[in-house]
Simulated scan of single mutants.
Amino acid sequence: DQVDAAMTAAGVNEAMHSLVIDGIFQGVGTVLSFLPIIVTLFFFLSLLEDTGYMARIAFVMDKWLRKIGLSGRSIVPLLIGFGCSVPAIMSTRTLPSERDRRMTILLTPFMSCSAKLPIYGFFIAAFFGDYGALPMIVLYFGAMLVGIVVAYLGKNTIFKGEAVPFVMELPNYRMPGRRNVMQLLWEKSKDFLERAFSVIFIATIVIWFLQTFNFRLDMVTDSSESMLADVAGVIAPIFAPLGFGDWRISTALISGFMAKESVVSTLGVLFGTSSISSVLTPLSAASLLAFCLLYTPCVAAITSVKRELGTMWAIWVVIFQCVVAWIVAFIVHTIGMIL
């Protein structure tokens, strides 16, 4: 508000004023508001890691994971995936079996990473209010359930065979060290902030430019006349059966491929002071949450898959997860319509 008032008083150019207020503050600022939630998540993950409990989780989960074709060792990358898919994918290098490693890498993006938390918080606060805990729980367990189904199908098709025997030395329990926990917490928070002021910052400016100007580079008063609306309108019909065929939602989903937090920042730029409830109902919001939960991971995670498994596997992950996300979102929307 102070920057807005100062720029207005100084008579700053309309385009520059819009860039700073409607672009940067609405975009990056919206994402930064979720930093406390991200820090809280990583704090508890750091506690688990520093106590020596992660290895015991692998031992306890071995029996259950073998039912879907994996060994207990795979649980550690999958758990790390709730924080970020990139280190989770890299941590699969410790798995002794190439079959287990490939299968774990393909399942890791199904775990709901912390970058999706701003998306959940944004839509749950907007549409579910005091009942927000229930959809949040459903999202996390729903992702795990879809991962289990995919793993079970993979076990009987492209990943036939049994997981390697589980042998692991269990470390002693220990009290988490304050320095270790704070170091891990700082590294994760720093990574989030770096993305907010690099990838998301650039994406926000690009989105602002595309929705502020038309193809003749004239500023538009109605964003539906912008070049962004023309481009996003081409793919918007794909999402119409899911209940969110608005071009602004399609744009946000595309930007989420660069970084999942960009979904929220893009919506902040495109809707501005308008209410998102004007284009979404609670049912379509639930369908959209299901899609965001499962569709392709960010470009950094896909790059990690490419580095570990090759280009074809990376392309397959993008296509497969988008198809799975569309199907699940369609099921959610259809069931909601019936009920």
Rank of each mutant, 00 (worst) to 15 (best):
L185E: 13
L309T: 06
V269M: 04
S71R: 01
P87D: 14
L48D: 03
I105D: 11
S287W: 04
G81W: 04
F123V: 07
A88S: 14
S112N: 04
S277K: 02
S114K: 06
V20H: 07
F244A: 05
R307P: 15
R102E: 14
Q211D: 10
K155I: 11
V332Y: 05
E308H: 12
A301P: 12
Y131C: 07
K188E: 14
V199W: 08
F127D: 02
T334L: 11
T303R: 12
V231W: 06
I57D: 06
R73P: 13
G132F: 04
L294F: 01
A88T: 07
A163C: 12
A259M: 14
D50Q: 05
P237L: 06
T157R: 03
P282F: 00
G272T: 05
L47K: 05
P96F: 09
A151N: 02
M144F: 14
N214T: 01
Y53D: 06
N156L: 15
L170S: 00
T8P: 04
V263N: 07
D246V: 01
L270V: 00
T30V: 08
M111S: 08
I80M: 13
A133V: 14
Y140F: 12
T281P: 00
L47T: 03
T104H: 01
L65W: 07
L134S: 08
A163F: 04
D218G: 03
F244L: 05
P109A: 03
Y140K: 10
A229N: 05
D222E: 05
V264K: 02
V28K: 12
S114N: 09
R178V: 07
S265R: 05
D62V: 02
N172G: 11
V305P: 11
P237Y: 03
F192R: 07
S278V: 00
I148Q: 03
T281D: 01
L70Q: 10
F239D: 03
F166M: 12
L153V: 12
S74P: 14
F197G: 10
Y173P: 02
T281M: 00
V305D: 06
A286Y: 03
A5E: 09
I238R: 10
V220Q: 01
M337S: 11
G256M: 04
V323Q: 00
G154F: 02
A236K: 02
I75D: 10
I105F: 07
G69D: 02
I200E: 07
I254F: 13
S274V: 05
L293P: 14
G243I: 08
V39W: 06
S226I: 00
L288F: 12
T51R: 03
V39M: 13
V149F: 05
D100Q: 13
L153K: 08
L270T: 01
C298V: 08
A125E: 06
Y120G: 04
K188G: 15
L242W: 12
P165E: 04
L339C: 12
D222F: 01
